[in-house]
């Protein structure tokens, strides 16, 4: 935990400024998500007020409906606030799951080597090479099919649509953690302290969890925040395509944005503008955090990021018999 948080404390100058701005923006969304029942005047799927009176379809921002009403009779402000809850839940779940799975697979693959490593590297590289949105679409289709066949309205306390969105995002981010952790592990495994751990009789599981883990996860927080930003936009894209969370399951900005397309032509700007701003703001906030951390953790990496590094081929690879 200490090493995970260290990069946050070590920031300075420009990086700190980026980080603070990003944290500020994200903090507002987190508040909105946590306090949604208090802040939002209506439920995300509410179409009428307490007296049973339907909202006026497409009414503009004004008293009663701070940001207006959209074409499905939903209060836009409430949709935005509940949407923050949906977005952050999905992204938190996706990032945590992909982080745990990616780190564990990377550790095992890098430490154990042999065929396990070759197979995993092959699969992960293939997944990484695939356009992530396409991968997310495929997986959300598959998962939706599976969840529909299971039936029920709640899975692990979540709507099936929310869970399948989170899981399909999980899948597309696993390779990033895997690659970083696996490569760091391959070099750390040769360190003397690993041999020393073996010499005191530590088992492979102990070596991986107590000796390698804390030394190979340095860059994981950065990947986590950058992925979170990416996950927000991918989630919105899925919703925009109608493949994500359905409007009666939870409020989702991307879906609302797609509904607003027709309105824009007739001069109704508020139905699309506000979900759009919410997406852009949250993505920006998370990106700022990621970049701020990246600057701190690896200042040289940023400059070299686009320069190809080619290693000379190894003439002879040394392997213990």
């Amino acid at each position: 935990m200490k090493s995970l948080l260290a990069p946050f404390r070590q920031t300075t100058g420009m990086a700190r400024w980026l980080l603070v701005t990003g944290v500020g923006i994200v903090f507002i969304f987190v508040l909105a998500a946590l306090l949604a029942p208090v802040i939002a005047p209506y439920r995300f799927d509410q179409m009428e007020d307490a007296d049973g009176q339907r909202f006026t379809k497409l009414s503009p921002p004004g008293p009663g409906h701070l940001l207006g009403v959209n074409d499905q009779f939903y209060d836009i402000f409430s949709r935005i606030v509940w949407g923050a809850q949906t977005a952050l839940t999905v992204v938190l779940l996706a990032v945590l799951l992909s982080l745990v799975i990616g780190v564990v697979l990377g550790l095992v693959s890098g430490y154990v080597g042999r065929w396990i490593d070759r197979v995993l590297v092959f699969i992960m590289d293939a997944m990484y090479a695939f356009p992530s949105l396409l991968l997310a679409i495929v997986f959300s289709f598959l998962l939706k099919g599976v969840f529909d066949s299971i039936g029920g309205t709640l899975l692990f306390g979540m709507r099936p649509g929310v869970l399948s969105a989170a899981l399909s995002l999980t899948v597309i981010y696993i390779p990033q953690y895997f690659r970083v952790v696996r490569n760091t592990t391959v070099s750390a495994r040769e360190a003397t302290y690993v041999e020393a751990a073996r010499a005191i009789g530590a088992s492979n599981v102990t070596i991986m969890s107590r000796y390698l883990f804390s030394n190979v996860i340095q860059s994981v927080p950065v990947i986590g925040t950058i992925n979170a930003a990416d996950a927000i936009s991918t989630l919105a894209a899925l919703g925009f395509l109608g493949l994500g969370i359905q409007p009666n399951e939870a409020s989702e900005w991307g879906y609302d944005l797609s509904r607003a397309l027709d309105d824009a032509a007739s001069g109704i700007w508020w139905t699309g503008m506000f979900p759009g701003i919410a997406i852009v703001l949250l993505v920006t906030g998370l990106t700022l955090i990621g970049e701020g951390l990246n600057e701190t953790i690896n200042p040289t990496l940023r400059k070299r990021r686009f320069a190809p590094i080619t290693l000379p081929p190894r003439a002879q690879e040394v392997v213990a018999k």
């Binding site: 090493s3 003397t192 302290y193 020393a196």
Partner: peptide, 16 residues
């Protein structure tokens, strides 16, 4: 049977 290593700077886990 135990071992003392050549490089004390590398023989200890930096994160423990």
């Amino acid at each position: 049977v135990q071992m003392i290593f050549q490089d004390p700077h590398a023989a200890l886990n930096p994160a423990m």
